[in-house]
Design a protein around this nucleic acid. Structure first.
Length: 324
DNA sequence: AACCAGGTAATCG
DNA sequence: CGATTACCTGGT
């Protein structure tokens, strides 16, 4: 049994708790136990428990990492996986000088210092999570994704607890859609409501068929590993082919799943914030807000979206935008 | 009890 | 094409 403790020094400030709990569409928050955030990570195909600890309010200090696996995994493999998920090599001070240069964006820094991209550990998980998040509340899609992992992911046991991986496209595409289908599969015994091992019972609603079909496409039609090597526009058009994926979800997938910083996901709130800050509150349609964001913020678009939303949430701007 | 929640797909003029 | 509308579900 491999057990080791590592340290990581982020490039600039990092707020672990804020980042994990900021509701990004990549994955639900990690489990929080004994002052550390925990998750199962597949590192080069090897299941590995990771516990990350950050001293409270020590946004500029190093992180302490606890890793546990029955496989032997190099320190650098573990570090690079964690660095990738939290975008720790990204120079945030460079982002901040960009934000400082703008009168509109400068105020976000004080509210969001240390907030980073919370990338999915695997693109497929991000695709499904993002589809699930559309027209949905954070609490509900988080719950759905956790159930999907528990029901169809592989279970791995560690000294620190048991965890489930996210199911593969092939596994997910074969999952029964609803209780009726599952009951028929099991020989029609009992009532439909007795059956819980189906996608609909995870509370995904009408997104059910989208998620199953997206899983099938990821398995047999679209090479989702290749998306990361494509340029942004091609990748955008490619992910739009998945059912349940429109412009907003596509941008989420490219940003949270593939780390493409020029993506600018526009939901109702970002639309209202952009309208309030840059268009004298006149109504702006999502495509226009998206184009504006991409041209105005360039490679920082994704982060600006992240910072604007959390700034608006904490500063009270969001509240003021609710009432007309 | 209507109404809303971090959109999308289907339908209509 | 641009504009409307239905849609699962869990919460107020």
């Amino acid at each position: 049994m491999m057990q080791k403790t590592l340290r990581i020094h982020p490039n600039g400030p990092f707020d672990l708790k804020l980042t994990i709990q900021s509701g990004q569409t990549s994955q639900p928050p990690w489990k929080f136990v004994n002052g550390e955030f925990q998750e199962l990570l597949m590192i080069q195909g090897k299941p590995c428990f990771i516990g990350i600890h950050q001293k409270p309010d020590d946004l500029d200090g190093p992180l302490t990492l606890r890793a546990e696996s029955k496989y032997e995994i190099e320190d650098d493999e573990i570090r690079s996986k964690v660095c990738e998920i939290f975008d720790l090599e990204h120079d945030l001070m460079e982002l901040y000088s960009f934000l400082e240069s703008s009168e509109k964006l400068q105020p976000t820094i004080g509210f969001c210092r240390g907030l980073r991209l919370f990338k999915a550990q695997d693109p497929f998980e991000c695709i499904i999570s993002s589809i699930c998040s559309a027209n949905n509340s954070i609490a509900r899609w988080n719950k759905s994704i956790l159930q999907i992992k528990e029901k169809w992911g592989d279970e791995f046991d560690f000294a620190s607890g048991e965890f489930h991986s996210f199911p593969s496209p092939e596994t997910l595409m074969k999952v029964p859609e609803h209780d009726i289908e599952e009951m028929e599969l099991c020989g029609c015994i009992g009532e439909p409501s007795d059956y819980k091992e189906n996608l609909k019972s995870c509370g995904v609603g009408y997104r059910c068929s989208y998620m199953k079909e997206a899983a099938r496409m990821a398995h047999e039609e679209i090479d989702i590993t290749k998306l990361g090597d494509m340029d942004y526009d091609n990748a955008f058009n490619e992910v739009l082919k998945f059912p349940g994926v429109g412009p907003k979800v596509a941008d989420c997938i490219l940003f949270y799943g593939y780390g493409m910083g020029q993506a600018f996901p526009v939901d109702v709130w970002i639309g209202r914030i952009i309208s309030a800050l840059y268009f004298k509150r006149e109504e702006i349609k999502p495509p226009k807000a998206r184009t504006f964001g991409m041209e105005e913020f360039g490679e920082h678009a994704g982060y600006v979206q992240l910072y604007l939303f959390h700034y608006a949430r904490k500063s009270g701007l969001l509240e003021s935008l609710k009432k007309k």
